[in-house]
Write a protein that binds this DNA or RNA. Structure first.
Lengths: 255, 255
DNA sequence: TCAAAAGTGTTTCCCATACACCCATGC
DNA sequence: GCATGGGTGTATGGGAAACACTTTTGA
C-alpha cells in the first residue's frame, strides 16, 4: 500500500505549483457530550472573545495545524486543550463547507462528537481567561435550547452554523444508541456500574423513560451473555435493595 | 485584566497565522454507485494521467473551487462533469485528512456517495482524453475487487486511499438500505417499476437473495400502505405472469 | 412496617422468515 | 401440456413491550 516515488515523479513533485488552487482554512469543531450530576445531557460552549461572532457562544474547536497533524489528531488536540480529557470516544460527524459560513474567509469545518464520562468534564469556573461553561441540552420540536444556572441560549443565538451542527450531533448520538455501545462511554466508571446507572444514561440521551425489567433482560442477553460485560462479586446500596455491580471487559471497551 | 487581553491576543494571532499562511488543498472524491445491465453493483473509476499515482485507477473527483462553491456543490459539479448526470442522490460520506495521503502536499478529501439509476451511467468508450471505465464490484472477506471485460483491479492497486474510501462507501450503502429508501434511486424508472425489479436491486446491493413473497408484503405495507408508492393500472410481461407496475409519488421522491 | 429500588417471571403482540400453493402468460 | 415468474396465504419463532409480583435494604 505504501506509495513509492519514482525518479521521474520526484522531479514532477519538485515543480508542482501549490498555489494553482486557492486554499481554504480548515477547523475542527467538537460537540462534547456528557451527562451531568443531575443526569442531564450537557455540552460545553465557549463565549467568543474575538470577531466574528464576538460575545456569542460557540463550539470548542480550532484551526488545523496543516502538515503537523491529521484532522482526527487536530480534534483530539483541541479536545485535550479545551477539557483536559484524553482517551475518550471521539469520531467524525460531518464536514461543513458553505463558502459564507464564516464572514472572514472560506473556512471548512470538520465537526466531531466526543463522549465524556459522567463527572469527568470540568470547566474552570471563574477563570476569566476563557469563558467556557457547561450547558444542559433541551431538544424538542421547537429546537434546541441550552441552559445553565445563569444563562439560556437558543439555537439561533450560537455563532456560525453551530446550532445546526449540534442538532445533527444529537440526532447521531440518539440513533447510534440503538445499535452501538455508546452508552457505556458516559458511565462514571466502566469497571463498576449498575444496570440502573446504564439505563439512566439511555434515558438521558433518548429523553424518555425505559422499563427496568426489560432493560435488564436485554442487557444480560447482549452484554453479560456475550462476555462484553461481567458481573462482579460486589453490590452497592443507596436506597432499597442493593444492586449488583458490573464491569466492562477489556475487549469490548473500544475508545 | 492584562492576562485576559494577552490570552485573547494570543488566540487571535494564532488564528491569524494559521489562516494567512498554512492552508490545505481540498478535493471531493465521489463513489458513484450504479447497477449495470446484468444487475451487478458497479462504479466508474478513472485512470490517472498525471502524477502522483500516474496510470493508477482512482475515484472521480477534483479540487474545490474555493469561494465559488460549497463542498456539496463541488461534488455535484464533479459528478456532472464526469458523468453528465444531474438530479441524483448525492450525500457526504466522510472526510479524510491524513497529512501524508497525498505526496504533493496536504490534501483533504471529502468523500461523497452518488446513486445512479440503472442504465443512466455512460462512459465514453474509446475517448482517449479521459480513460474512465465502469467496474463491477466484488466485496467479500478478502477485500474489494473491481472487474470489467478487460481489467481486474485489486483494492490496494487504487490511487491514494481510495480503496479504503470505497469500502466505507459500500458499508454505508448496505447499511442504509435497511432503513432508508435508497433502493429506489437505482430503479431504471421510478415512475414504472415492478416489485421484482426493486427486489433485484436490494439483492444486488446486499449480495444475497431475498424471498419474493415476504419482500412484496413489506413493500406493500411500508410503501403502498403509506402512500409513498401507488399501484398503476398497467402490467408488464416478459416471461411468466404479467407483473403489476408501481410508481413513486412525488412527496416520497427526495433527491 | 413501610417506602424504595432491585430483580424475576409471564403474557401479549408484532414482525421477520420460511414455505406451500395458486395464477397467468409464452412456447 | 409445462416452464417461468407473479402473486396469495399460512405457520412458526424470536424479540420487544407491558406489567404483575417478589426481594432486600434503610428509615
Amino acid at each position: 500500500m505504501a506509495y513509492k516515488c519514482s525518479k521521474e515523479e520526484e522531479e514532477f513533485l519538485k515543480n508542482y505549483d501549490e498555489s494553482m488552487f486557492k486554499h481554504p482554512s480548515v477547523t475542527t469543531d467538537i460537540v462534547i457530550f456528557t451527562v451531568d450530576e443531575n443526569d442531564k445531557l450537557s455540552i460545553p460552549l465557549i463565549k467568543r472573545g474575538v470577531f466574528p461572532y464576538k460575545d456569542r457562544w460557540a463550539l470548542p474547536g480550532g484551526f488545523l495545524h496543516v502538515g503537523e497533524e491529521s484532522i482526527d489528531e487536530c480534534a483530539r488536540r483541541e479536545l485535550r486543550e479545551e477539557t483536559g480529557v484524553e482517551n475518550v470516544y471521539l469520531s467524525q460527524l460531518y464536514t461543513f463547507g458553505e463558502p459564507d459560513r464564516d464572514p472572514r474567509t472560506v473556512v471548512i469545518s470538520v465537526a466531531y462528537i466526543a463522549h465524556i464520562p459522567k463527572g469527568k468534564l470540568k470547566v474552570k469556573a471563574g477563570d476569566d481567561a476563557k469563558d467556557a461553561e457547561i450547558f444542559r441540552i433541551k431538544y424538542d420540536i421547537d429546537g434546541v435550547v441550552f441552559t445553565n444556572d445563569t444563562t439560556t441560549i437558543y439555537e439561533n443565538d450560537l455563532a456560525f452554523d453551530h446550532g445546526k451542527i449540534i442538532k445533527m450531533a444529537i440526532t447521531r448520538l440518539r440513533n447510534r444508541l440503538d445499535y452501538e455501545d455508546d452508552a457505556f462511554d458516559f458511565l462514571r466508571d466502566k469497571n463498576e456500574f449498575t444496570i440502573s446507572e446504564l439505563k439512566k444514561i439511555h434515558e438521558t440521551i433518548k429523553n424518555r423513560t425505559l422499563d427496568l425489567p426489560n432493560f435488564r433482560k436485554t442487557f444480560l442477553r447482549d452484554y453479560v451473555g456475550t462476555g462484553k460485560v461481567i458481573e462482579l462479586d460486589k453490590t452497592v446500596v443507596s436506597k432499597g435493595k442493593p444492586a449488583k455491580l458490573y464491569k466492562m471487559t477489556e475487549g469490548a471497551d473500544k475508545k
